[in-house]
């Protein structure tokens, strides 16, 4: 058997040199991500300093700060950025509010069969198609749609296509990304921790607040990377269910044909938000749990 080692010079070489092994593992994926993706982002940043020739409307290389100046000084652009940030946060908070009780019920109360059924039930819409779900939400919240039809006997009326519906639609789209990690994390909490908490006199909600939330915070942060950043860049939900709601994504998309440098400058806004968010999330060690 020992002869085998001698006949495998590459294996032996790599086995003895972990650095080389690491390098050969990372070479291809890092070339791809850095060489293709990060480079593209960098080129986008460069384009943001270029300008469009007003005569031919062709993109010309150069250096101008006009695009960035507009992004940071025009009140309408700033309010759109802030509105988008607020929508993304609201979606995240709403997802947490629903994911924690759902996860708690699934992991700690539901019998095994129901737990599995619910796990499938939350996963399924994740696969059902992004546009499909937006169109479905549009159908539900149309003035003479399902929601108002259902609620009419109670005298309740939906808000029509508006910012609350955009938040609801985005929550609908990204909720599973929050619900699944939260559920998994709650499952890993030993049940006797709950017992200890209630033995010490904590009521149900207190237990959730004091015991569960701290333990599942990393999972919530991991989920929020999806709910926050996917909401931040979205514009189709706003286009179909937002009425007059404008988001950062709408401004980027509107400029991509007409004024690519301006679109590039707008793109820097969500990039900044997301990178800051990821940096914070990384400190908590949550990224490895995603």
């Amino acid at each position: 058997m020992s002869t085998a080692t001698e006949s495998r010079p590459i294996s032996t070489y790599l086995f003895r040199r972990p650095r080389v092994r690491l390098f050969s593992l990372l070479a291809l994926p890092m070339t791809w991500i850095v060489g293709v993706y990060i480079l593209s982002l960098f080129l986008l940043l460069i384009t943001a300093f270029w300008y469009v020739d007003p005569f031919t409307s062709l993109v010309r290389p150069g250096f101008t700060l006009d695009n960035f100046q507009a992004v940071f000084t025009e009140p309408a652009y700033i309010s759109t950025s802030l509105r988008t940030l607020w929508i993304a946060l609201a979606v995240t908070i709403l997802s947490v509010i629903f994911a924690v009780p759902l996860g708690l019920y699934m992991a700690k109360i539901a019998p095994a069969w129901l737990r599995n059924a619910l796990a499938v039930a939350i996963t399924l819409p994740l696969w059902a198609g992004y546009l499909v779900k937006i169109i479905a939400m549009r159908l539900v919240f149309t003035e003479e749609g399902f929601f108002n039809w259902l609620m009419a006997p109670f005298g309740i009326k939906g808000p029509g296509f508006s910012m609350p519906i955009v938040i609801l639609t985005l929550t609908y789209l990204w909720f599973p990304y929050m619900a699944l990690p939260v559920y998994t994390a709650i499952r890993q909490i030993p049940t006797n921790l709950f017992d200890a908490s209630s033995d010490l006199g904590a009521r149900g909600f207190m237990t959730i607040y004091r015991v569960v939330i701290p333990l599942i915070t990393p999972a919530i942060i991991a989920g929020s990377v999806f709910t926050f950043s996917l909401s931040l860049g979205d514009y189709l939900a706003a286009r179909f269910t937002g009425g007059a709601t404008q988001m950062i994504g709408s401004m980027i998309a509107a400029n991509i044909n007409l004024n690519p440098p301006m679109a590039a400058a707008f793109s820097m806004v969500p990039i900044t938000f997301v990178v800051i968010y990821l940096m914070v999330a990384r400190r908590t060690g949550s990224l490895e749990r995603m």
Partner: peptide
């Protein structure tokens, strides 16, 4: 994590 519209615009720009 970065918005799809940014990723899309970055690639199409390149």
């Amino acid at each position: 994590a970065l918005p799809g519209v940014v990723t899309g615009v970055a690639f199409s720009n390149t």
